[in-house]
Design a binder for these strands. Structure first.
Lengths: 248, 248
DNA sequence: ATAATTTGTCTATTGATATAGACAACTATA
DNA sequence: TATAGTTGTCTATATCAATAGACAAATTAT
C-alpha cells in the first residue's frame, strides 16, 4: 500500500471533513491525485474513506474555498495546480536566496516591533543576561505576493539598536545586518516541530482554520560563533515543505 | 507578547477543546507553564481563551489521558515532566546514534514487509526503472520501549534481497546494510512536512486522535552517490522535535 | 434524443460540541 | 473550625457534525 492512507478517526476533536480534506491534500502532494485531473467522484471518495457523501462534500467545499480544488456540476471536481514551495534549510539559510528560481519576487514585511526584556530561553540563545533588552520583530515572508512564512525574531537591543528601521526599509534581514557590520553569518542550530496554527498565524498567513504550521526555532551566529539572532518561524504546512540539503 | 497565543477559531473543523489542548501543550513546551507546577485554575484558563470552563475541562481531560497533566481535586492541575525527544537530522542521520545520551535503549521493530513494483516517485528516488521490484519495510522506532517514529522504507529488491530478515534480526538499518557490503552511507536529501496523523500512525505511535506528525522523506546514498534507500518517516510532533545540526 | 454519470440542493434525524448554571467534594489557609 | 479556592458532577439547552434519502441540474457518452 503506497501512499494510500488508512481509515479515519472519530471523536478526536478533529471533524471528519477536516481529516478528509487533509487526506486529499496529502493525496495531491504525494501524487495519488494528479494536478489538473479530476478527483474521484464524491461517492467513490465517500466509500474509500468510509463516510457519507455529504461529509466528503464538506471536505471538498473547504478545499474549494482554499483554492485547491474546483468543482463543476456534471463534470467532476478538479485539482488546481498548487505546488508547494520547497524551502531550503541549512547552514546558510536565508529567506530570499532560498526561494530563487521558484518565485520571482520575495521580501520580508515588518508587521510590528517592540523592545522587551529577554526571557530565559531568549537570553540563553543570544548569550546575554536574562532581563536585558531585546528587540522583537514580527515579520511575514512573502513570495510573489503570497505569505509563505511568519517569524518572530529577537536581537540584542544594545548591539542592534534601530534594526527594525533597517528591516522595514530593506525588506531583508541579511541586508539589515550588513548595516551593523555583519557581512556573513551562519545558522548555528535549527529545531523543528509542528502544531496547529493559532489565530494570529491564521490571519497573517491567510490560512483556513485548522491548518498546520511547521515551526523552526533557530539561532544565527557570526562566523566566529557569536550569536546574533534568535528566531521562531512558522510555515504553512500545506503550502511549504522544508528541504534539508546535505551540503552547506 | 512572548509565546502567548492569540485567540481561538471556531467552526474550523477542529474542536475548541482540541485547540486549547494544543495551546496548553505549546505553553508547556515554550515555558509559559512550568513543569511540575500548577496550571492556572480552570476558570482562569476559560477566561484567557474565551471559552466555557467545561470546554477547558475537556481539553485538560484529553491531556490527562495523554499523561501530560495530572488533576487533583481541591488542589489544582499539574504539569508532569514530559521532555520531548530531540531527534537530530543531518548528512549522517542514523536512528540509533542520534538519540545517544537521551535514551538508554533504542531499536527498530519490523512491523511488516512486502515486495511491490516501484511507482514513479520511488523509482526516481532509487534511480531504478519504474515497475521494477522494491522491498517495502514498515518499521517503528522505539526508545526505552516507547514508540518515537514510524517509517516506510523502500529498497531495490534486486540488490537488497532478504534485507527484511536482517532488519528483523538486528533491529537496525545500518547494521542490515553492512550485510550487503555497505559500511557507510550519507543522507542525500530530506524533505520535511507535517500533517495530521492517520489511523495507522495513531495506533502504531500510541497517539491520541487528532495528533500531528512531522514527516520526513529522505534518500540515503552510498559514499559515491548511489541511492540505496528511500524512506518516509513520521514523528509524533508532541513527543519529538527534529534538530538540524550545522555541521555533519 | 436517451441514458448514465456527476455535482448541487433539500429535508430529516442522530450524536457530538459548547455554553450555562448550580452544587458537591476536596484542599489549603487564616 | 470556618472560609476561600479548586476540581468533579449533574442538568439543561443550543449549535455543529454526520448520516440518510430523494431529487434537481449539468455534463458526457451512447
Amino acid at each position: 500500500m503506497i501512499g494510500l492512507a488508512g481509515s479515519i478517526e472519530r471523536r478526536n476533536g478533529v471533524s471528519l471533513w477536516r481529516q478528509i480534506a487533509d487526506r486529499i491534500l496529502q493525496g495531491i502532494a504525494s501524487g495519488d491525485f494528479a494536478e489538473n485531473a479530476a478527483l474521484p467522484p464524491e461517492m467513490a471518495l465517500a466509500e474509500r474513506y468510509g463516510v457519507n457523501r455529504h461529509t466528503v462534500r464538506s471536505a471538498i467545499a473547504a478545499l474549494v474555498q482554499e483554492g485547491v480544488l474546483k468543482a463543476e456540476q456534471g463534470r467532476g471536481t478538479f485539482v488546481l495546480s498548487r505546488k508547494r514551495l520547497s524551502y531550503p534549510i541549512g547552514a546558510r539559510t536565508r529567506f530570499s536566496t532560498g526561494l530563487q528560481g521558484q518565485t520571482t519576487e520575495r521580501h520580508i514585511a515588518l508587521l510590528s516591533s517592540s523592545t522587551e526584556p529577554a526571557n530565559r530561553r531568549i537570553a540563553e540563545a543570544l548569550g546575554i543576561a536574562r532581563g536585558s533588552a531585546v528587540i522583537c520583530l514580527e515579520t511575514r515572508g512573502e513570495a510573489d505576493g503570497h505569505p509563505v512564512s511568519r517569524a518572530t525574531t529577537w536581537f540584542a537591543a544594545k548591539r542592534f539598536a534601530g534594526i527594525e528601521v533597517a528591516v522595514a526599509e530593506t525588506g531583508s534581514i541579511t541586508a539589515s545586518l550588513k548595516r551593523f557590520g555583519i557581512n556573513d553569518y551562519l545558522r548555528q542550530s535549527t529545531v523543528l516541530s509542528a502544531r496547529h496554527a493559532d489565530a494570529d498565524d491564521l490571519a497573517d498567513l491567510e490560512l483556513q482554520p485548522g491548518a498546520i504550521v511547521l515551526v523552526t526555532v533557530a539561532v544565527n551566529v557570526t562566523l566566529d560563533g557569536q550569536p546574533i539572532q534568535f528566531a521562531e518561524s512558522r510555515f504553512p504546512a500545506e503550502r511549504v515543505e522544508l528541504r534539508l540539503s546535505a551540503n552547506d
